[in-house]
Amino acid sequence: MNTQEATYKYALRLGDSALVLGHRLSELCSKGPILEEDLALTNISLDMIGRTQALLKYACELEMQGKTEDDLAYRRSENHYYNYLMTEQPNGDFAHTIARQLFISVFEYLFYTELEKSKDATLAAIATKTLKEIKYHMQHSVEWTIRLGDGTAESHKRMQTAINDLWMYTGEFFEMDHLDMFLLHQHIAVDTHPLKAKWQDYIKTALTEATLIMPIDSYMQTGSKKGIHSENLGHILSEMQYLQRAYPDAKW
């Protein structure tokens, strides 16, 4: 694998996470707990779709097969998708949506802060733009975590359950495989190992203020870097890709 091929896959991984999470959030349209929140979640979803476009477009350029970002999004099957398992988890109740947002946005904040220093100019530029958005996503999820955790007995219980349920998908954030190491040596990829302690600090601070208990690490789910997913992704894709698959000759 040369650098260009590796970078293609790296961009694809990042793009897929943004795509799938953006899709999950878009499912919530008209289902928010209050109209104001509906608009807030939509904004986050739109940021994610925008980021997807930038990353997949770059992946297409690196792949040099004349594809578009839509070809990548709508014509791959699930075992060629590389999004974090966390992103495909169902929205659940609002506590699950917020817990997922909290875990991801804190991780992405740390990740894209490092990616901004990448030797790959395009990835660095995407990181700079993305960071501004992520800071807001992080604030949004932290504020809600605190309110739900330290709100009523019911909201506290729901939030704690959500944190516990999703914890096993956080381990993947800090995995480094051969591709990551290869690109790390070329100062393109981010070294996620050192991010783990920082991430835990951030999460701990938020959970403490929310009067919630930080789960203890046990078995962490893994697989997305190899294209192995939970059952959720297949359903997401069969819905998302329906028109492109049913009418392969059509242009939309």
């Binding site: 608009l39 904004n43 504020e143």
Partner: peptide, 20 residues
């Protein structure tokens, strides 16, 4: 106007609704 529980949320909501 917006509806919100407290000042932080009011600011967030105002941002999400009136500066799109």
């Amino acid at each position: 106007s917006v509806h919100a529980s407290d000042e932080k949320m009011a600011l967030q909501n105002a941002r999400d609704i009136y500066t799109r």
